[in-house]
C-alpha cells in the first residue's frame, strides 16, 4: 500500500453534505473494470460534465487551480452510500490523497485506509475556515496535511490537530497492508475456529452440507 506521511497541496472546496459514492463514480464505470487506473476521468462525472459531455465550468474541479488539487474539503457524511471501493480508486487516480470533512460514510472511511488515502475528521467550522482561506487566493494558498504530527496547517500557518486511530496511522505511515498483518495471526485464528466449532456447532454445520 502507498505510504502517507505529509502532503502540501492545493485543496479543493467541495462544500456539500452527503456526497455519496454513486456520485463519486457511477456503477457502470466499475462493472467489469479491469484497470483501476482508468477511473480518475470518471470521478464526479455527473457534476463535472453536462448532458452533452462538455465540462460544466461552474463545478469546482473544472476550475483552476483545483484541477490539480490533491486535498478535498468536504462536509458531513462524505462517501456515504454504496460500499464500492472504486470511489476511492477514482478519487486517488484523480490525484486526491486526503479528504477533510466533519464526518464520513463508515465503509468509505475504511476503504480509504486500504488505499493510502487519508480521511481526516475535522469540525465543520474548521473545514469552512480552510475553504475561505483557500478561496481568497487559490493559486498560492496551499494546505498541509501532516500525518506525522497529526495536524492540518492552513495557508495562514494556523494549525488544527486531528485524531486518528493508532492502528490506521501506523499502517499509513509504513504503507502496511491489513492482510499481511492478519496472516501473521493465523495461529490465533485457527485456535478461535477450533474452539468455536465446539461452542457453536450450528454455525459450522453448513460446511458439511445441509
Amino acid at each position: 500500500m502507498d505510504k502517507f506521511t505529509q502532503l502540501k497541496a492545493i485543496a479543493a472546496p467541495l462544500l456539500r453534505e452527503n456526497v455519496d459514492t454513486d456520485i463519486i463514480v457511477r456503477i457502470e464505470r466499475l462493472v467489469g473494470a479491469t484497470f483501476r487506473n482508468e477511473l480518475g476521468r470518471y470521478a464526479f462525472e455527473a457534476w463535472r460534465l453536462r448532458p452533452d459531455g462538455t465540462e460544466d465550468p461552474d463545478f469546482v474541479l473544472n476550475r483552476e487551480p483545483y484541477r490539480s488539487a490533491q486535498i478535498l474539503l468536504a462536509l458531513d457524511n462524505f462517501g456515504c452510500g454504496s460500499s464500492r471501493e472504486g470511489a476511492v480508486w477514482a478519487l486517488k487516480q484523480r490525484g486526491f490523497r486526503a479528504v477533510l470533512a466533519p464526518s464520513f460514510g463508515d465503509i468509505f472511511f475504511n476503504n480509504c485506509y486500504q488505499n493510502g488515502v487519508l480521511p481526516v475528521i475535522m469540525p465543520n467550522s474548521a473545514v469552512q475556515a480552510l475553504a475561505r482561506q483557500v478561496e481568497a487566493d487559490p493559486g498560492r494558498k496551499l494546505v498541509t496535511v501532516d500525518l506525522v504530527r497529526q495536524v492540518v496547517v492552513a495557508p495562514d500557518g494556523g494549525e488544527t490537530a486531528f485524531a486518528i486511530d493508532r492502528l490506521r496511522r501506523e499502517a499509513l505511515l509504513d504503507g502496511l497492508d491489513d492482510i499481511g498483518l492478519t496472516l501473521k495471526r493465523e495461529s490465533e485464528i485457527a485456535a478461535f475456529q477450533a474452539q468455536d466449532r465446539a461452542r457453536r456447532r450450528w454455525i459450522w454445520a453448513v460446511e458439511t452440507g445441509r
Binding site: 472504486g86 476511492v88 465503509i107 486500504q114 492478519t182
Partner: peptide, 17 residues
C-alpha cells in the same frame, strides 16, 4: 457491507479488522 480490499481480506483470513 465491506469494500473490495476487505472482501479479499476475508477470503484470505476469514477475519476482518
Amino acid at each position: 457491507g465491506i469494500g473490495s480490499s476487505e472482501v479479499t481480506h476475508v477470503l484470505a483470513t476469514q477475519c476482518l479488522i
